[in-house]
Design a protein around this nucleic acid. Structure first.
Lengths: 338, 338
DNA sequence: AGCGGTCGTGAGAGCGCTCTCTCTCCGACC
DNA sequence: GGTCGGAGAGAGAGCGCTCTCACGACCGCT
């Protein structure tokens, strides 16, 4: 087997088929204006030479790459934690892009170095557009890309003074959390704590805001611990809450993964769920059905988020107008933990 | 803000800085042969115009893209299931590529359509090399790519009659499983069942083979159910095993995720673990420490696999010789479930 | 028979970059 | 003072492709 034997070019195929480069290009790109026999000859030549178009050359002239990047400014372990949020988004995005015959390219930008590299990659026109998920703090990336004229859509309202208004897709965090807290109040809970998410992410901020506002309305004290959406942080935060207020009888946790950690701590502390302490999570990941007891949680339509992001981006890339913000609903799923 | 204002080219920068294209190119690419003041002028022009090199044009002439694809022929939900295997591989690959300043590009190729699209992407020279993980059956992809002269490294020995020998990285499945089964035998277990992985994947095949061979050596009957590495399939398989042989007192499960499902079934069936039934998993994902009871399991050095794959690929892409196969060790981690 | 119109094909420019080759200029050496 | 060498800059070819435009062949119409 010849490693890296000379790659055939359009030119080579054209010579072999006895036609011009233009005609080969037409056939390869599925133009219908080529006569049957010639089409056949070109096809055969392509086959025989094992011709594959050079995409760099193509996109140099077309100014398109037909691929879209989904950038996750997270380290791999975070992205793929059993937190099923990313997979869901990816699934949704894939579905939509597949239908449009675009290639999805995933990039992790956890470290500062990779963050830069990804920026160069995107601004270098390696992709036709960029989807951004899980932004931390006031990440300049969306603004930078938008300013370079690259179509961008974010999941979750981008933080910062939005120098360039970037369209985004998000869910109704506040409404969902409000329903959860109300459910706890309605079932007679008095001391309702929360384990909040990281306060440099929209999801973390808004869910805490939802909890605070709902509790304020009912004139109850808020009891807050902060985690980072990981299970381990949920464990620790729960322990902290129990120390702070041993009499708490309910806790709203800003992610199912942290809620799982909280359940472990509660069991260790000898508290029965939901008898002694009611627990409600957020996300409704698959695991929520498998915890002991099964977790009551606020479901967000994760796959839908991905689909909607992709749809908006494709529209943007096609030069069509898009909504500056798409908001999707949340839903309280009642199981056994509250 | 002007959306998509005309992108400046090298030419534009050159004009602005009052030098030639070649000189700008030199500065941009860090050549040292450019005089200080000129370098300065070029830098300023680049800055002012917001110039970013067009990567398609560059790679058209250099024949490099400085990016590497990691292809996962799986649907997103599978890849990102709380099975922590992929994330680990990705982490390892990232570490290694980051050090080499290459961009990692992740691609899912779950559906037939996306499988094709990914193939076109890779053979179209969008990337300098390809890493393949989680191959199913005799996937022709590695062979195809290798034959096109594209550097490829697989995780796990590729199945099929290997028309083109593709280098791979794998772990010692058989040895690890053997140690697990021996541990069960040593602790006095008599009827040892297994929940095997999918039999179209090397990992599934080899782990079952390891179980069979170790059991045969000790002249015990094998009791087999087959899952697909998901938690749900573990649940179902365990129920099946209990039906088949209510007296079983141990089960080796080919993945931690399936082991988790099995634990749930066992609890439902009123069996105590490890008292009535001992359970050993495979992988040692983070969750293994959080199951009830914590899971005894065979650890594989997942991050290491990724690193090794990336290292081999970089070597291959640089034209250096590589080992046809790299084998990494496994280790039995004893917790409470066996 | 002459005309415009259509259809299929080829010629050729050029996408934005890198890189080789050439040219100029200046200092050093005999 | 003349020659040589080397460093720094520019000219220009060309990477592999698409796409516009021009051209020839052939149709049906008057």
């Amino acid at each position: 087997m010849s490693l890296a034997r000379e790659r055939p070019t359009l030119e080579a195929v054209a010579r072999r088929a006895g036609v011009s480069r233009a005609t080969v290009s037409r056939v390869v790109n599925g133009s219908t204006t080529v006569a049957g026999p010639i089409q056949e000859a070109v096809r055969r030549a392509v086959q025989e030479l094992g011709y594959v178009p050079n995409l760099a050359a193509r996109s140099l002239v077309t100014q398109r790459t037909d691929s879209i990047a989904l950038i996750l400014p997270e380290a791999a372990n975070r992205v793929f934690s059993d937190d099923q949020v990313f997979p869901g988004i990816i699934r949704g995005v894939s579905q939509e892009l597949e239908a449009a015959d675009k290639q999805l390219v995933l990039m992790l930008a956890g470290s500062a170095a990779s963050h830069d590299r990804v920026e160069r990659y995107a601004t270098g026109r390696h992709v036709d557009g960029v989807l951004l998920a899980s932004l931390h703090g006031a990440d300049p990336l969306p603004g930078t890309l938008a300013r370079m004229g690259i179509p961008v859509v974010c999941s979750g309202r981008p933080l910062g003074h939005a120098p360039a208004p970037v369209p985004y897709v998000d869910v109704d965090h506040v409404g969902g959390v409000a329903r959860a807290v109300r459910h706890l109040l309605d079932s007679g809970r008095r001391r309702i704590a929360t384990i909040a998410g990281p306060q440099d992410m929209v999801a973390g901020i808004e869910r805490l805001a939802g909890y605070r506002s709902e509790l304020r309305d009912s004139r109850r004290r808020s009891i807050v611990a902060v985690g980072d959406f990981t299970r381990e942080s949920g464990r620790i935060a729960m322990r902290q809450l129990l120390d702070d207020d041993p009499d708490l009888d309910a806790v709203f946790v800003a992610s199912d993964l942290m809620a799982h950690g909280a359940l472990v701590t509660l069991r260790e502390a000898g508290r029965r769920v939901p008898d002694d302490v009611a627990v409600i999570g957020f996300d409704d990941i698959e695991m929520a059905r498998y915890t002991d007891p099964p977790l009551t949680t606020v479901r967000q339509p994760i796959v839908q988020i991905g689909r909607e992001m992709a749809r908006q981006l494709l529209r943007l890339a096609a030069g069509e107008p898009v909504e500056p913000a798409v908001m999707l609903p949340t839903e309280l799923i009642i199981r056994d933990s509250a």
